[in-house]
Amino acid sequence: MGWHLIRLWTLLVYGFMFLPVAVVVLLSFNASQFGSFPMTGFSFRWFVELAQNDAILRAFRTSLILGALTALISTTLGVLASLALVRYRVPAANMITTLLIAPILVPEVVLAVALLLFLNFLDLPKSFPMLLLGHVIFTLPFVILVVQARLVSIRRDVEEAALSLGASPVQTFFQITLPLMLPAVLAGALFAFTISFDDITGTLFWKPGGVETVPTQIFSMLRNSISPEINALGTVMILLTVGVPLLGLALARALATRSGG
């Protein structure tokens, strides 16, 4: 009896979580020229219009480049730091971890203001580099948490075996440690990419005039009224942010089984 109630409750909670999003996807195929009910027919016209909208295509390019660069830099920094924290006895390791995850303990608006004002003081105005630096510092803690959690589970004796069999430390790193770490590295990079791709709070502060990412583009389109085009853009974004990590998960699992993990 109690269990059935809990199940029903969970069903309702997940309905609440997913139904509005499902409506966005549904309406993006609406043939009507208004982005609203009723559905007058099934059509791809809004996706076609999306593909012909220069502003949206530009926003997509900006978001993809920004996300990829953020993932690259943030993952590099995060993996190195995680290696140090997991593999070595570092004095005050707990304090260092807290320092490194501090960017997510500070409200993002405050981080955004501080970075904007400081870089501006250093004569670096709102620009793509500022946007990139902001995204890197904001995603770094997530990468460190994810990578650290997975690194702990990699056993050291495989590396020690390689070393004792005569491999140099550099050889050991590239032939043993890195392949074993790959799923963790990919997970960290994916996490950084999706967070960067979705960010709006900091981005609105850092982006120069005229440059839009996909979320800020949606935000500025919302000011007029909700058009079917926004729903279509939302659908594409959901496909990307849900599809890419799912693909990544599958890839990570495949890699893990192949390496015998």
């Binding site: 730091a81 570092v90 260092i96 501080a114």
Partner: peptide, 16 residues
């Protein structure tokens, strides 16, 4: 190994 990340946090968060 830690210095790049610590430098980033210092100059992009604490100093700002």
């Amino acid at each position: 190994l830690l210095s790049p990340a610590l430098t980033a946090v210092t100059f992009l968060l604490f100093v700002p």
